[in-house]
Design a binder for these strands. Structure first.
Length: 503
DNA sequence: CGGCTTTGACCGGCGC
DNA sequence: GCGCCGGTCAAAGCCG
């Protein structure tokens, strides 16, 4: 107080100028002095400005630092990708060969664990549309035994991003996909992506050429079946521990319905993407009956518009998942996916328990469990969790996977959750990718970049989270695998080709 | 006032 | 053929 009194206004002005550099480093206690300073209104306003300015400076400084940090992280990710890519290629080859060898016999190597683990799953499920109603009967019988054929067919996923399986990967299902353009992962059967013609998804026969292609010859006259299959769009369901009503994914959604489905007291909400007028993408949100803290979000369809930056990550994620599934299916041709609910062989090995494929019922899906601890072979860095914990984002022992990081972040910054706040959407960018530029596969990068910007406005929160997530991402084997797979897929067929999955 | 949510009704698919 | 169930529609109400 006294000190303040001694300070005439002019001095304060000088102080302001000097304060800038000081504040750059970090919010200084300087304002405190002024706060207690009993002054006239003019002084108060000046102080106010001063503080605002200082705060802004401080934020700028933080942002710069964060930017540097992000650059470092990015370079780390890139380098890791390089090595992983190399490794992945090797793995793929190995699995491919193994799959081929097993293909004849193809007794489905049951992946009991996968299904059993389903409970805990945060599932990122990609619907395989392969077995249409038509095949259903056929598959049903064969499924039990798990024919390689079935698996192969089912493996044909479609992902909005248009990630295509690597030619090498598709080797097994060549019969299904044939030489035709590399099967494109197309999450939605809608052709909307290309056309925007917002016709009922179920009807777009042309929507998913890939699906058609994959239609194995066995299907016989598959016209109808194909249509049906398309009706059953591929889906990506993400199971995440989340306290918020819905998972922020970077897209804007409009709720159009709610139902209480059988077997789950928790109502299922239906949302439609409202980013674009006729975007066919929809999502279902439902809480897990066993654990209401787990939010199950199922995305369906393909965006027919440019995705907001925040949403691209989801596209990346799903595409990566699709790629994983693809590779898994390929190598798992022998494995029975029918009714099986697991992503066998390669996929299982690559993804661990966090992923599972469900082909049962109308919408076979792949499930990535983001709630479960990282796979045993996880490369997770203890630091990732530590960072999260240190940042105060995570109070409980949630695995420090990138997903958990996301969760933690969400919990800590509920304000980011709004439909208008894409923040976390970078990880779950909303729906299946509408755009498929290769660079978008770097969802993490996008996310990080965005996060950094957020950091400017939210003090230390975002930076810490960014760091946490960056670490988590770089350390999470599942994500790495997914990322590598996705990128590989795109690169494999040429980035351009992947741009438009179908059509 | 426009957009979103709520909620009951309706429709189509699937199983019995 | 009938009933169940999931998904969607659309009117009414709510909110900013």
């Amino acid at each position: 107080m006294e000190v303040a009194v001694e300070r005439p206004t002019p001095v304060k002005e000088e102080k302001r100028a000097d304060a800038k550099p000081e504040m750059t480093a970090m919010g200084s206690p300087l304002p405190i002095v002024f706060e207690s300073f009993p002054s006239t209104q003019s002084d108060a306003s000046i102080k106010q400005e001063q503080r605002t300015l200082e705060a802004a400076k401080a934020e700028m400084g933080e942002v710069r630092e964060e930017n540097e940090r992000l650059k470092t992280t990015l370079s780390r990710i890139v380098s890791q990708y390089q090595s992983l890519h190399t490794h992945f290629l090797d793995v793929v080859k190995v699995h491919e060969q193994a799959a081929k060898a097993k293909l004849p016999a193809a007794p489905a190597p049951s992946l009991p664990t996968g299904a059993d683990d389903a409970d805990d799953l945060v599932s990122l499920s990609l619907g395989t549309r392969s077995n249409g109603a038509r095949r259903k009967g056929h598959e049903r019988s064969s499924s039990s035994s798990g024919t390689a054929e079935t698996a192969a067919d089912e493996g044909q996923l479609s992902l909005g991003l248009g990630i295509a399986r690597r030619s090498g990967l598709s080797a097994d299902d060549d019969k299904a996909s044939g030489a035709s353009a590399a099967p494109v992962l197309n999450l939605s059967s809608d052709s909307s992506s290309a056309g925007d013609t917002a016709k009922p998804p179920a009807k777009d026969a042309d929507a998913c050429p890939p699906g058609t292609a994959r239609k194995s010859p066995s299907a016989g006259e598959g016209a109808d079946d194909e249509v049906q299959q398309q009706a059953k769009k591929a889906r990506v369901s993400v199971r995440v521990k989340c306290n918020t009503p819905t998972m922020p994914d970077g897209c804007q959604w409009r709720k159009y319905g709610q139902k209480i489905s059988k077997g789950n007291p928790c109502p299922r909400a239906y949302y439609r993407c409202t980013v674009a007028p006729h975007c066919p993408v929809r999502k279902q949100v439902q809480r897990c009956a066993e654990d209401t803290s787990i939010l199950i979000t199922t995305y369906e369809g393909q965006h027919n518009h440019q995705l907001p930056p925040a949403a691209t990550a989801m596209a990346s994620t799903t595409s990566a998942a699709a790629a994983m599934l693809t590779s898994g299916s390929t190598s798992s041709t022998s494995a029975s996916l029918a009714h099986g609910h697991h992503l066998p062989l390669a996929a299982a090995g690559l993804l661990g328990p966090t992923t599972m494929v469900s082909t049962a019922a109308a919408c076979p899906t792949i499930t990535l469990d983001l709630t479960t601890p990282a796979a045993p072979h996880s490369l997770m860095h203890p630091s990732s969790y530590a960072a999260a914990a240190a940042a105060g984002y995570e109070s409980k022992a949630v695995p420090a996977t990138w997903s958990s990081g996301y969760l933690a972040y969400g919990a800590a910054t509920p304000s980011y959750y709004g439909k208008s706040s894409p923040a976390l959407g970078h990880l779950f960018g909303g729906g299946l990718g509408g755009s498929s530029r290769p660079e978008q596969l770097y969802g993490a990068q996008t996310y990080l970049q965005r996060t950094s910007s957020l950091g400017a406005g939210h003090g230390a929160v975002a930076p810490a989270v960014t760091d946490t997530i960056a670490k988590a991402i770089t350390s999470d084997p599942s994500f790495q695998t997914a990322l590598v797979a996705a990128i590989t897929s795109v690169m494999g067929r040429g980035g351009g080709a992947a741009t438009q999955d179908q059509k």
